[in-house]
Amino acid sequence: MNHYSALVGLCLVWLLGACVKDHVDGPIEVSLERYPIPGDNFFPEGIAYDSTAGFFYVGSIGTGDILKVNVQTGQTSLFSAGASSNRPTCNGLKLDTKGRLWVCGGTQNKIQVLNPDGSLLKNWDLTSFATTGFVNDVILSDRYAYFTDSQNQHLYRIDVSTDQPGEVEEWLTFTQDQIPFATTGVNANGIELTEDQKYLIVVVSTSGKLYRIDTATKAISEIQLNTPVMAGDGLWLDRHMLYVSRNAVNQLFPVILSTDYLQGTVGAGFGENLLFNTTMAKAGPYFLVVNGQLNRRMGSTPPVLPFTVSRVRIP
């Protein structure tokens, strides 16, 4: 192989590995077992990790604020205020290769993308598609951002390949026969993308079922599991190992997927002292797991303060 071919090969490897910024592991040490999150009404939910800089971003269901946290020191700073960005609540988060942060607006039925300095780049109001909605989670390919709606039976998509993102589209609509939704509770929740970007994987929290969606044909197939992953929330896919954060169970669960992503074997749960864990981001040999405590938000039991993000070693 000549020097030019070697250089091209290295560039291709880098591009494939860096198509989604917070899916790349870095050498920065994740120093703390628990990262305190200030605020007695924060109720964290989404997380995105910048492995090259050693910071993670965590968003608030309670205020819409997004904090930036140093994984070495635990120091927190306000990255984007919910009030000034017209964002009263914040669910799933993802970083793209341009350093922009994609934000799911939850029950506000909105999507936002923020510049690397925290300023608002663009806002999408989805009421033209559905009067009410619950934009819950997001995953990025090298061209698109895909979003789940926990209330309505469709997925949204936005072109993210240019400096100015495209318009939102109702990319996929499905039926009760294809992906059944319960009349109450959280339905379509976490979303992931296979390494070859051929399939999306979605978990439905109310049923504990997983679904494979072809990004080219939009064909939907249920992934046959040995046991359901009830209360499945955030997902993380590493080749054919899918990790499911099960909030009401207070643990993470590995699911070994077949090569065609149509079969899955659920393994033993792991993670100690988690508190209604919602989403997670991979940081080297660990997951950074959000202790959302959303089950304590409306009830008579107060949350355990301070709110935290836990470091959980991956078995």
Rank of each mutant, 00 (worst) to 15 (best):
residue 109 N to H: 02
residue 153 Q to D: 09
residue 127 T to W: 00
residue 152 N to Y: 07
residue 190 G to E: 11
residue 118 G to Y: 00
residue 227 T to N: 11
residue 119 S to Q: 11
residue 211 Y to R: 06
residue 184 T to M: 15
residue 216 A to E: 10
residue 193 L to T: 09
residue 186 V to E: 03
residue 232 G to C: 07
residue 125 D to K: 12
residue 115 N to S: 10
residue 179 I to V: 10
residue 161 S to Y: 00
residue 234 G to M: 01
residue 119 S to A: 11
residue 147 F to P: 03
residue 151 Q to I: 13
residue 154 H to V: 00
residue 144 Y to A: 13
residue 199 Y to S: 08
residue 235 L to N: 00
residue 121 L to N: 12
residue 120 L to W: 07
residue 155 L to M: 08
residue 203 V to W: 00
residue 118 G to N: 02
residue 222 E to F: 09
residue 162 T to V: 10
residue 116 P to I: 03
residue 194 T to E: 06
residue 229 V to C: 12
residue 129 F to Y: 12
residue 217 T to K: 06
residue 153 Q to R: 15
residue 208 G to F: 05
residue 123 N to I: 06
residue 235 L to M: 08
residue 150 S to D: 06
residue 136 N to M: 04
residue 157 R to A: 15
residue 113 V to W: 01
residue 186 V to Q: 09
residue 197 Q to G: 08
residue 162 T to D: 07
residue 202 V to F: 00
residue 173 T to S: 13
residue 114 L to Y: 02
residue 109 N to T: 05
residue 136 N to L: 07
residue 182 A to D: 15
residue 110 K to Q: 07
residue 162 T to G: 15
residue 116 P to Y: 09
residue 181 F to T: 11
residue 196 D to I: 03
residue 152 N to Q: 15
residue 190 G to V: 12
residue 233 D to C: 10
residue 145 A to H: 01
residue 112 Q to I: 00
residue 128 S to Q: 11
residue 199 Y to K: 04
residue 159 D to W: 04
residue 201 I to Y: 04
residue 123 N to F: 07
residue 140 L to F: 01
residue 195 E to H: 12
residue 235 L to E: 04
residue 120 L to F: 14
residue 132 T to M: 05
residue 143 R to N: 00
residue 213 I to D: 00
residue 181 F to R: 14
residue 205 S to N: 14
residue 169 E to P: 05
residue 198 K to C: 10
